[in-house]
Structure formats: structure tokens, C-alpha cells
Computed example of a mutant assay.
Amino acid sequence: MTVYLHEGDLPDDLDLGTEVAIDSETMGLRFRRDPLCVVQLSSGDGNAHVVRLNRPAYDCPNLKRLLTDPAVTKIFHFGRFDIGMFQLHLGVETRPVYCTKIASKLARTYTDRHGLKDVVRELVGVDLSKAQQSSDWGAAELSPAQLDYAASDVLYLHAAKARLDQMLAREGRAELAARCFDFLPSRSALDLAGWDEVDIFAHS
């Protein structure tokens, strides 16, 4: 595995293919309080690209172009948060998308454990470390441990997606999952508009 660190944006000539695993690191989990600091990506080749963003300008045209490229599927785990952060700070709507957490909830109905660590452990056979999850992602320099952690969050999403696709097809839920993925950027927009804690589809 090689982890490539990029300052500010992805390189001009980087081609990550038609399916790219993406995650982000922030200073917290509140949209308008906590800034977006890092975006990590993998093409599924065993390597990861970590972008330390320039704040507050967020001048990253190559990354923005990738996020909005209709020919590239962006694979997330709990994409609702990352997509919302990209809408807020980068000003782009990320499409098309796939979320392994949504896929897991639709396919793995025999469990209530749908976190990335649980999904990857069962479906890929890798035990992820979460030791750096709450570290300072806004630091001027990222530590080797932070880079390894950021990479681990995207390195196995392609393999997890492949297993989940098989399960969704087996259970007859692939089309339902696809419709959920299509709605996900709108769900993120609702979060940003103030409906993050409200289920507008509920009766009450």
C-alpha cells in the first residue's frame, strides 16, 4: 500500500477510474461549526490519495470535477455526511454515489451492526483500527498514523461494495438500493437546510 499526500487538490493528471472510494475528515460532526479538512480517495488498487484541503478557500478544481463527474461513481460509507460537507464547503453536489452503509442496512438485515469496521470485518476480512478517528485533522501537518487511518477508510470500500452488490441482488433489493443512492444528495441537502433531525416522511 502507498499513501499519497496532496496539498490542496488532486494532481491534474490523476485518473482514478470509474469507481472511486471517498471519505472525508473534519473537525467534528456539525456542519456549520466544524470545517472540512481532508478528503481521501482510492481507485481500489490498494493505494490511497489523501488531500489536505486549503481552508477556507477550498480551491480544489480537480477534486470538485471528480465529485461531479457523471461517469464516475463515488463510493462512500455513510455518504450522507460527506456529501453534505462537500455541498457546504466545496459548493458541489456529488453524483452519482453509492453508500455501503445504506447497502448494508438493506442487505444485512440479520444484524444491526452497520459501521464501517463491522462491515469490512465481515465482508472483507480486515479488522480496521479506529485509533485516529478523533485526532486533530486541522493540524498543519498530518502524522503518518493519521495518513494510514485516512487510507484505511477507503481502501476496502470497493471489496465491500462487490460483496454487498451480490447480497442485494440475491435479496431482490438492488433496484431499491439504487433509488436510495440517487436520493442521498437530496437527503444531505435536507440536513443542511435544517431537517437533519426530522424525518419528513414520518406521520408525526
Rank of each mutant, 00 (worst) to 15 (best):
P11G: 05
Q166D: 14
M167I: 13
E93R: 15
L142P: 01
Q40A: 06
R187P: 04
A21G: 02
A162W: 08
A162G: 04
Y58H: 07
G115S: 11
C37I: 00
D112I: 02
R32S: 14
F31E: 12
V20C: 11
C37W: 02
G125Q: 10
P35E: 12
K130Y: 07
D13Y: 03
N54R: 13
P56A: 12
G28Y: 08
D15H: 10
A131E: 05
G8N: 11
L164T: 04
P11W: 04
L41I: 06
V51M: 06
R80K: 15
T2K: 07
S24W: 03
E25G: 04
F86A: 10
D196L: 13
V119E: 02
I200E: 14
H158G: 11
T2C: 05
L66G: 05
Q87R: 13
H158K: 08
Q87E: 14
A107T: 00
A151K: 04
S152G: 05
E93P: 07
S24Y: 02
Q87A: 11
Y98S: 08
Q133M: 00
D199M: 09
M167T: 06
F31G: 06
L142T: 02
D148Y: 10
P96G: 12
P61N: 11
H49P: 03
Q133N: 09
L41W: 00
L36D: 02
G84I: 03
D127H: 07
V51P: 05
L88I: 02
E141Q: 08
A57W: 15
E197G: 07
A57N: 15
K161D: 01
L123P: 02
T94N: 04
G115P: 05
F86M: 15
F201H: 09
D69Y: 02
V154F: 01
K161L: 03
L67P: 00
E7A: 15
D153E: 14
A151H: 00
A131Q: 12
D153R: 10
D112A: 13
K161C: 05
V72S: 06
H203P: 14
L190V: 06
A193N: 12
K130N: 06
F31R: 10
L16R: 10
K130E: 13
L123F: 03
L190N: 05
K161Y: 05
L5Q: 03
D182T: 14
L63E: 01
R33T: 09
V72P: 11
D165S: 06
F31Y: 15
D82E: 13
T100W: 10
G8T: 01
A159S: 13
V3Q: 01
A177Y: 13
L176Y: 15
L184K: 08
H6C: 00
L128E: 09
L147S: 00
E175H: 12
D196T: 03
A139H: 04
G84P: 08
A145E: 15
D118P: 10
I22H: 09
D196R: 07
A202L: 07
Y58T: 07
P61H: 06
E7T: 13
E93S: 08
K64S: 10
D12C: 00
A160I: 06
V38W: 09
H49R: 05
T18H: 15
D165A: 04
V38Y: 07
E171K: 07
A150Q: 10
A150L: 03
